[in-house]
Write a protein that binds this DNA or RNA. Structure first.
Length: 127
RNA sequence: UGAGUUGGCCAGGCGGUCGCGUCGAGGGGGAGACCCUUCGCCGAGGAACGUCCGGGCUCCACAGGGCAGGGCGGUGGGUAACACCCACCCGGGGUGACCCGCGGGAAAGUGCCACAGAGAACAGACCGCCGUCGGACCUCGGUCCGGCGGUAAGGGUGAAACGGUGGGGUAAGAGCCCACCAGCGCACCGGGUGACCGGUACGGCUCGGCAAACCCCACCCGGAGCAAGACCAGACAGGGAGCGUUCGAGGGCGGCCCGCCCGAGCUCCCGGGUAGGUCGCUGGAGGCGUGCGGCAACGUACGUCGUAGAUGGAUGACCGCCGCUGAGGCGGAGGCAACUCGGCCUCAGCACAGAACCCGGCGUAUCGGCCAGCUCAUCCG
């Protein structure tokens, strides 16, 4: 399970990560990610599992699996990271190993894109 | 042994690694709110589901009257209450255990009854039957055609055709008359708390269904819901127009009328701000056992148990072994054979479904397994 300190639970934070952050998409999951280096807080992760995924039992199972996967990897994330994992309908049929692979790939893709954006904005000087 | 029927129970088990939530205890940090850490206890369901009924609880001043509206509908009981449960009555189904019922009123009124059929709700002459008149034929018994009239016994249609059977009667018939039966109404007697049941006498001779179409009758119902409601912290910025201050604006009791109460602000437009936390929050019509009362639902006395409280939402993730079911493969035992019984290995599957204020029900979903009562059939004694 994910310790309480690493949980994203304010709705404004969810909104900011999904709207302002970069995305890394896979078959079963979409990762939204933003890093705020000004705040030296630990990385936090939130989860969104909509009704399209299934009934309440399958939604709970998907959410618990995602939390279990993230619990072992949250230490690798940079301080100030805010990530939201949004489950897609395919997550209901996927097993633990498949879900793990998608989460890892999604996280690293999103992190790479975030780094790219930092280079673009500071180098180009636009916005 | 097989088939059936009713009721109840279970919801795969054990272990390991890594975690989460509430509560309690200890330690550390901090002025404090609180945070970190260690240990311990507990941590989803029979339906937690649908949100269809009924209550508790909270707020609306009290929870008032009438109308309207909604619900309910055999009788008696149970209950906090119910549309639920139990027992009984009536009707229907089944050999039976048992099951099913949207079970008040159709001689208060209105309305509807498709198709078929001659006629469908103050019934109805298509065929048939009977009488009579006219005509034709004739073996002088009648037969055929047409008109007029009588007739609801027969045919045919239909879910349903205005009682049934027998006799009298008649031109043919008809409750036209009679007997018995069915049904209806009414009176009396007996049984039952009651729905109702049994019996006797009389009456007119017979009366359709739908009330989940409106309606009538009896009984019940004030409204909203834990996002109820209470408190703390925090934020901002006002401007304009209209109505009004005991001759009362506006508001509250779902709607309307009455009645009552609060009452100095209210409504609209432009602009601006907030949406964080604490309590409510789980000990309750509670579970289990025994005795007593009751046919039962249930009640009651005593004893005993302590059993989820999240809030981006804990109660788990992964692995191993065993169990059950199915498929495939390989041996074994019995047998002439069909086949039966048991073993090992591999693979797959093991349901429906997740608390959100709490209870009592109903309805729906569900892989399967276990137990008990009763009924029918067959075999043995």
């Amino acid at each position: 399970m994910l310790p309480a300190a690493h949980r994203l639970r304010r709705s404004v934070d969810f909104e900011r990560a999904v709207r302002r952050g970069v995305r890394g998409s896979r078959q079963t999951v979409v990762v939204h990610l933003i890093v705020e280096p000004t705040v030296p807080a630990p990385a936090v992760v939130g989860f969104v599992v909509s009704k399209a995924v299934g009934n309440s039992v399958t939604r709970n199972r998907v959410k618990r699996r995602l939390r279990a996967i993230v619990a072992t990897r949250v230490g690798d994330l940079a301080p100030g990271t805010m990530a939201v994992l949004r489950a897609l309908p395919a997550a209901a049929g996927s097993d633990f190993a498949g879900l793990t692979a998608d989460v890892e790939a999604g996280l690293s893709a999103a992190a790479k894109r975030w780094a790219q954006r930092q280079v673009d904005t500071s180098g180009g000087g636009r916005r």
